[in-house]
């Protein structure tokens, strides 16, 4: 790791101000992605601004039809939250499937979304549920937030403060774990909104990161049942291929995980 200067921010405003002072600043949340990357010397920020201790960044709020999770809330806290388990059980389940206990106790939803790893779990829920990413400057709808591999709509120095999820009528998440990293080899989140719309997002599958899956959405709109996907084929083109999963295998997983997510949603 190269030398860096650590700052613990006391508030959201303080964090943004500290960030602006550094020549090449980075926000630090759970550190589960940033610190390994710094250790490998693939990142060398001049300053790291720790946002994980800011009171306004931690906590879960359910009001009416919206679940709001503040950005520095850990995966563990989301998984354990009775409020989330009740309002959007699929979201609590998703959080419980991230990595291992050590990662879940440190890693945060804001860090995960800012990082936008193509195999991360949260992006699938954010996109399928049509959530809104809140920053210190604005509210960004899920559609506009994810911009491809490790790329988001966030501007330099812009900080995620919370994510708001509309409570769906039904939702389910199914994930085939990467055998080594435990990220999603492919994960599919299916949601039926209270207005009756169907939204499906897959992570770990596409070369351009999290994606909506139109063929599955159409089939489920016609018939919300796992069997409705029996005749769906997912094209392998544009899908990721690596030593743990070829593109056609991932195409199969999009469908199979889609079916299992529908079964889980009920």
């Amino acid at each position: 790791m190269y030398e860096t200067t650590y700052h613990r921010a006391s508030s959201i405003d303080d964090a943004v101000a500290q960030f602006a002072k550094g020549t090449d600043s980075k926000f630090l949340s759970g550190g589960q992605t940033l610190l390994p990357v710094m250790k490998q010397r693939l990142a060398a920020p001049s300053d790291v601004i720790d946002v994980a201790k800011i009171k306004d960044m931690i906590g879960i709020d359910v009001s009416g039809d919206t679940v709001t999770i503040k950005a520095a809330t850990t995966h563990y806290d989301v998984a354990q939250s009775e409020a989330v388990q009740k309002a959007i059980p699929a979201l609590a389940h998703l959080a419980s499937m991230i990595g291992d206990p050590a990662v879940r106790h440190r890693g945060t939803i804001g860090g995960s979304l800012a990082n936008n790893d193509p195999a991360a779990d949260y992006p699938a829920a954010v996109l399928a549920l049509g959530a809104v990413v809140k920053t210190n400057k604005r509210s960004i709808p899920a559609e506009d937030f994810f911009k491809g591999l490790f790329t988001t709509a966030l501007e330099d120095g812009e900080m995620i403060t919370a994510v708001s999820f509309p409570v769906p009528a039904k939702a389910g998440y199914a994930k085939m774990r990467h055998p080594a990293s435990r990220f999603a080899l492919t994960g599919v989140f299916v949601a039926k909104t209270k207005a009756g719309d169907v939204r499906v997002a897959a992570t770990g599958a596409s070369q351009s990161g999290v994606m909506r899956v139109a063929p599955i959405e159409q089939a489920l709109k016609a018939n919300w049942a796992a069997s409705a996907l029996d005749s769906v084929t997912i094209p392998a083109s544009g899908l990721l291929a690596d030593i743990h999963g070829s593109a056609d295998y991932r195409a199969n997983l999009v469908k199979v995980m889609g079916q299992r997510a529908v079964t889980a949603a009920g």
Binding site: M176, P179, L185, H244, G245, S246, Y249, N252
Partner: peptide, 11 residues
């Protein structure tokens, strides 16, 4: 015998 290989061996 990764899941990918086994799946291909089946299908």
């Amino acid at each position: 015998a990764t899941p990918d290989r086994v799946w291909h061996a089946i299908h």
